[in-house]
Design a protein around this nucleic acid. Structure first.
Lengths: 326, 326
DNA sequence: TCAAAAGTGTTATCCTTACACCCATGT
DNA sequence: ACATGGGTGTAAGGATAACACTTTTGA
């Protein structure tokens, strides 16, 4: 008498829009079963073993159905199967079916408007405001997060050490890749509204009101979608450094500044302009086109293209990130 | 009327034994449904949503049941869901249930004998003999693989380019991380016995005899387990370079040579002794104990330990790999 | 003419690589 | 004594980080 399992697919779909990193979100149509459902989520859909030969085929199909938008680069992220995950209402399941989510990261150079009414591009700093260090260390960390974490940690040395390491307290360095660990720390400390909601649901109560400081700590999402998003952002930040994936986010022709702004938007730090150019030239994966982009404000910038051909000819690395100190 | 889905769990469990990288294999007890079943597989077991709160709990449980062996470090690898995957007989499914496998990579410092009769440690070069470059470029590549791939490619430039890039033909460099791509290329070219078996099954025929050169091209495994193993090996080879995971494979005290041999066994290349030591000292994650190991043959070697405490105090990186040229 | 952004040059420093050499043990 | 493996020093070359500076446009 085994309980049935339903496979769901989710996608973290990333693009660059006006120099900002954005992610595709959907707002499931209002429905009775959704309490307090101003919440957005990631595009998700069921996996039907009858009709879908592979996960990826199913993924591309439901994304283009839901958003009229075609995916480009796709890679598998993670599979979540913990009991107690919120059951997204779109999954049709018999009663208490266990939902397992196979999650994907997708990158696209066309952040076109999706003309589907319930989907929209949202900058991901809306969900993780503490992850954007481009203007320097966010005040949010020292003013809100650090005190709250210290209160939560009390005298527990292990908790304190984690908080220090992950949020760069007491002169610890910032490691931009550990997005998921930071989100999970906040969740564990009860600083993510999702934590209260999930705990309430476990006790069978109605969801408690979000804690007072929630809005500052990033907009919550449906189910565990913010965890999935954090997984995707962390993976992308890491991958940039050892695979030439930025170019999957760029249009066919771009200026080096646009490329730099794209990298900065993703990793969330400012880079040193001159050295960034040198790094890009050294890896030798771009080619100047001789033509100029005159829309830049100052001196016109040369347009470049990604020499995609080279990927089939040699190993291919990523970009190192020459940080800009203030 | 959706077809049911069964979740299976598989594990690539890696250890170092006498300086060799080994992986835990199981040989399911002979059964009528298993044609030609001298084949080994990876430990796998069903995931029961009734009783298991998380995948990882289920994984640890069935591994210790099957092999009387406890896992240490564990990370999720990949989830396979393609139609046409061979259904492992241990999964109890109603008729034609679709089997989705959530696969894990596990590392352990204790390659103890498992006293379970059907499980055994096997060096992974048995399954991927072309991946071991420690004694220099394997003759197998030029004598067997390259000619077969060139025949398969014919005049198809794209196929030729892939073969050159992945198997380091025509002076292309060897990239030890692309284990999965290499296996998939061989599979696609019909050089892995699994390919013939799967194609035969798709046509509803009995499995064809393995191709003549199969034995040289690595021992095949049950179902798609060799693909899973390739995924795990590739991931581990990559991870070594940016996370201190080697130490999860070492006993509490070890010599630097033992550490080097472990790294070499995993990445499959020889490293430059003097520079390897420098690299290890620089990352500053090991500590000399002042005591000596006298069992080494020549001059006794100092014993070191991994300073695991540091992981909670600072970011932590991996080892760079100073190659030994011949 | 000035602001804004593109683009070049140069240097100190650190890491990697390669090579040469010495040390302590068992046979 | 010598083979075997452990361990140290040092110098060349390349990558990175930090600096100052020139060029080309629009307002």
């Amino acid at each position: 008498m085994t309980q049935s399992v339903v496979i769901g697919l989710s996608a973290v779909i990333v693009a660059i829009r006006a120099g900002e990193a954005v992610v595709l979100t959907v707002r499931p149509h209002a429905a009775a079963s959704d309490r307090g459902s101003a919440l957005t989520g990631l595009p998700f859909g069921p996996f039907d073993p009858e009709n879908h030969r592979t996960f990826e085929i199913a993924l591309r199909e439901f994304v283009s159905e839901q958003t009229r938008f075609d995916l480009g680069y796709v890679e598998q992220l993670y599979t979540f199967g913990n009991k107690g995950r919120d059951t997204p209402r779109a999954e049709v399941g018999a009663g208490a079916a266990r939902v397992v989510s196979v999650c994907y990261l997708a990158l696209t150079p066309n952040a076109v408007d999706t003309d589907a009414p319930d989907s929209a591009w949202a900058p991901w700093s809306r969900f993780f405001p503490w992850e954007d260090w481009r203007q320097g260390r966010p005040a949010l960390i020292d003013e809100t997060i650090a005190p709250a974490l210290r209160t939560w940690a009390g005298t527990d040395e292990e908790r304190l050490a984690r908080a220090r390491l992950l949020f760069a307290l007491d002169d610890a360095g910032w490691n931009e890749e550990r997005v998921l660990d930071r989100y999970e720390l906040l969740y564990e400390a009860g600083l993510a509204p999702e934590a209260n909601r999930d705990r309430a649901r476990e006790r069978g109560e109605a969801a408690a009101e979000p804690a007072a400081l929630s809005p500052a700590l990033g907009e919550p999402m449906l189910s565990d979608h913010r965890r999935i998003l954090a997984t995707g952002l962390g993976r992308l930040r890491g991958k940039l450094k050892y695979r030439p994936v930025v170019f999957e986010l760029m249009p066919p022709e771009f200026t080096l500044s646009a490329l730099q702004r794209a990298v900065e938007a993703i990793v969330g730090v400012s880079l040193h302009k001159q050295n960034f150019r040198r790094v890009v030239e050294r890896i030798d994966l771009v080619e100047g086109l001789g033509r100029m982009d005159t829309e830049t404000g100052g001196r016109p910038a040369e347009l470049f293209r990604f020499r995609r051909e080279l990927l089939t000819q040699r190993p291919a690395g990523g970009l190192s990130l020459p940080m800009q100190r203030d």
